[in-house]
Design a protein around this nucleic acid. Sequence first.
DNA 1: ACAAGTATGCACCTTTTGGTAAGTGCCTAA
DNA 2: TTAGGCACTTACCAAAAGGTGCATACTTGT
Lengths: 138, 138
Amino acid sequence: MSKTPPQAPPCTPTLPGFTCGLDATLRVVAGKWKPLILYFLAQGGPTRYGELRRAMRDVSDKMLIQQLKELTADGLVKRTDYREVPPRVDYALTPLGESLAQALVPLCTWGTDNLAEVTRVFARREASASREERPASE
Amino acid sequence: MSKTPPQAPPCTPTLPGFTCGLDATLRVVAGKWKPLILYFLAQGGPTRYGELRRAMRDVSDKMLIQQLKELTADGLVKRTDYREVPPRVDYALTPLGESLAQALVPLCTWGTDNLAEVTRVFARREASASREERPASE
DNA sequence: ACAAGTATGCACCTTTTGGTAAGTGCCTAA
DNA sequence: TTAGGCACTTACCAAAAGGTGCATACTTGT
């Protein structure tokens, strides 16, 4: 028995509109930046918009704002607008958001632990990607 | 200065091409079906293509095949082709894939635990979505 | 006066993603 | 003979995701 399905994890099938709990979660955190935002907020505590923005490089204003809005609407983060003269706003996790951030920790750990393999994977992907673009030799 | 990161979780910043471990992981499992596939394989052991297909309703051949291909190329699942007359192929997790599946467990748990909230979230999303489509009343 | 920073909003556009439908080759059941 | 299942493959398309850049309203710094 080389592979023994260890034990049935809590992936209850036949839920309302979801395939399973994982499916439900994934739909909530779908979006290029949401998990990162959650995780970021989980580490630094309440954070101002600009800080977040600078911390997560490669994110555009539009995207960050949009994702923050959704997370807020979904009750995962709380937005505080101090209604000051130069605008000041900060974002913090709600309890719900915090619990989700906790659930993300193993993924982060996995990524760090297997960074070597992941890096190789991406090297391969990009290699084949560029091969497709230039069918003719270098 | 004012902001003290409480304790540094395993989200090592300044990695090769990734923001952090979480970022790395997310890029590997990006794709509407990948986490589900991994999770599914983690539960059921080696599975034939058709079984997977039927189990994950709402997935098209194109998508399932494509994602399985990528997962295979990325070393997360192993494809076994029995080269039989009516084609027979099955898929199983590699050790790497298995470890990633483990890391997904908390997400699944979160989803099941917070199913009520998640469901509400989606109800709200769809409500506002339809409101946008039909600016004028129902 | 002018640039810059603050937190957004908005219009426009490209890229990516995902879906549909058809086809392939081979075999079995009716 | 026709139908259907298997495990895909391909071409074509629509929708979603995401990016750029400009605008806002106000203040501070030069």
